[in-house]
Design a protein around this nucleic acid. Structure first.
Lengths: 345, 345
DNA sequence: CCGATCCGCTAATGCGTATTAGCAGTTATG
DNA sequence: CATAACTGCTAATACGCATTAGCGGATCGG
């Protein structure tokens, strides 16, 4: 089993009694279109190929052709480790589906060690014809380099310009958030709180923007600009502010606060309405509570991004930017303001 | 943006006033080990490289080196689609972790259309240095071709010989199953049922083998050699056979039967003990019941398989076959035989 | 019967890199 | 002072394939 040397076209040629060029021609002229190679020879060569199980080395092929039918997938955070699994899985699902339909394979870039950078010493990325970039936070410098470079890529998630427009497919968070705010106001909520970052990642800014667009300034009673804070702290602040409805950007925060609120005897949404701005589908299943929210079409985003990337790779299509609508999720945590709510501070 | 021609070493060489070979030497001689290139020249070349942002084309690199630091991952079933996601995710997680540690990227083969075959017209697989094969069912012919071929691969899950020993990393289901049977017998169970396939895939056979090894022939009261049968049918058969304990190979079947049994007023494990032979970790979280079972170390299997594959790729290591132990999971569905059980048929 | 055309195939070349042999100039060695 | 050894670099080559130019023979047209 000592690494039997790989078969090459030269080997096939020798076995079939022809030249390497002929083998290549047989392989590449779609079944008699040229007519240059007569059926007899073609069959002889094909037989040898079948018998030996020869396949052309895609690397050498790529050397001369330029394309590989491989799409790179770069994630700033490791793709699978459990903490992130739920976040990335739907994206990968969509990418895989679309790639399969389009006849592409996927090159998953694992990132060298801890520091995940696209431009490292080993830019193995270039083996792919183009790449999809996933991740909440992008290194702006790298993004700019990508934008100004000639390597086709598409980001999943909206991105601000970085030395030029960034091709992306994102979720349209702002109007989806606005819709939820309107819904809350229609239900009588006038003391609304916001818990989550409102700057940094584009996705955070979009949510915040949509929130601001829809809410009257007087209605925002408190704004906890953080994620992952202890539920007790958050809940205390909300109660102190007399909020009747709270918007969370992070599902995890919402879950924690909701659980705590219930143990304290508050009813949801009777005493406090909760809205989550964007959901993880999986998480919904795990917890008992179905939060009022909007659905982020992760799979569709990934599919669209993949298709967009292929357009860029194959047709050198211009930069596109696409935001997919996020459908509202009814849920059971947003209700009308209770008029007889009595709170004991 | 009309595909600006890529920089090559020749371009760098011209800019730095040296030859292409010198550029390559600067890039590949680990920082002055050779001493052949003086610092002055080295710096000049490096400056040009930095200024231009040049990176070596990995394809050309691979042409000459032979290795790619890419591992293929072939799944007979599509890897991500939701039905399979829970099955494949832990494997992918482990593979990704190990690959990252070892400095390899992952090539996910999407398989052409519905028929997933390793040897198709387009065996882009060869781009990888080796590959990992996932899936419950293998095409024996393809497996044999892999075994007799020269392309390094490792299967996840034990495989019978196919024209030679198959390198694999599997879960050691037989002894783990035996242990559970012994545990059931120690608790007084002498009327045990088995629900699940006992042939076909190796994993099924191993479970069945372990079951048979540990059980006295007289104790197996019924054997439903099927999966996915309606819970009512299965439960009726179990009750008719007076089983006090039932082993399921499929968690889904166990869940269905357990739920039905409870609605019929049976207590688990009071009236009927349930054992699941091998668990999906995720599924455990989703359902309320924690089944007595053993843990399949999917992630560890995938890691080990990846490491084994790299050994084969880099050191041309001989075929190894490795079975990882499956730790028992206590759960709450296996209890002592109730002596006062009264059953009304 | 000779030039033109076509057929079936092959030699040669290039893709971008790594690597080896080796050249010219300099320094050390006997 | 001649030879050897070393230094700093370059020309040449190979990797496996796709592609082009073109060669020898056969067929055709006139």
């Amino acid at each position: 089993m000592a690494a039997a040397k790989r078969l090459t076209q030269r080997d096939i040629a020798r076995l079939a009694g022809v030249s390497q060029a002929t083998v290549s021609l047989v392989l590449n002229s779609a079944d008699g279109n040229d007519g240059r190679i007569p059926a007899e020879t073609r069959n002889r060569v094909n037989k040898v190929i079948r018998d030996t199980g020869y396949v052309a080395d895609p690397v050498a092929r790529r050397m001369v052709k330029g394309l590989n039918r491989i799409l790179g997938v770069f994630t700033y955070e490791p793709a699978f480790p459990s903490a992130q699994a739920d976040f990335f899985t739907p994206f990968l699902l969509g990418i895989e589906e679309a790639a399969q339909e389009l006849g592409y394979d996927l090159l998953l870039l694992t990132g060298a060690g801890t520091r995940r950078k696209i431009f490292g010493d080993n830019v193995r990325l270039r083996l792919a014809d183009g790449c999809i970039i996933l991740g909440r936070q992008f290194d702006p410098a790298e993004l700019e380099r990508l934008v100004t470079g000639d390597f086709p890529f598409v980001a999943v998630g909206r991105r601000d310009d970085a030395g030029g427009p960034v091709p992306y497919v994102g979720g349209d968070y702002a109007p989806a958030t606005s819709a939820l705010v309107h819904r809350a106001r229609d239900l009588g909520h006038h003391r609304i709180a916001y818990v989550g970052l409102n700057q940094g990642a584009e996705s955070s800014e979009d949510r915040w923007q949509g929130f601001q667009d829809a809410i009257g300034g007087a209605d925002l009673v408190t704004n906890i600009n953080a994620v992952g804070r202890p539920a007790a702290e958050v809940l205390d602040i909300l109660l102190a502010a007399d909020a009747t409805c709270v918007f969370f950007t992070e599902l995890a925060d919402a879950i924690a606060v909701e659980a705590l609120a219930r143990t304290r005897g508050l009813s949801i949404p009777g005493d406090l309405s909760i809205v989550v701005i964007g959901n993880h589908i999986r998480a919904e299943q795990a917890t008992g509570t179905r939060f009022t929210s909007f659905a982020i079409p992760r799979e569709a985003m990934a599919r669209a991004a993949t298709q967009m990337l292929v357009r860029r790779v194959e047709d050198d299509a211009p930069v596109e930017q696409l935001l997919l609508p996020c459908e509202p999720v009814e849920g059971e945590t947003l209700g009308p303001v209770s008029t007889q709510t009595i709170r004991i501070k």
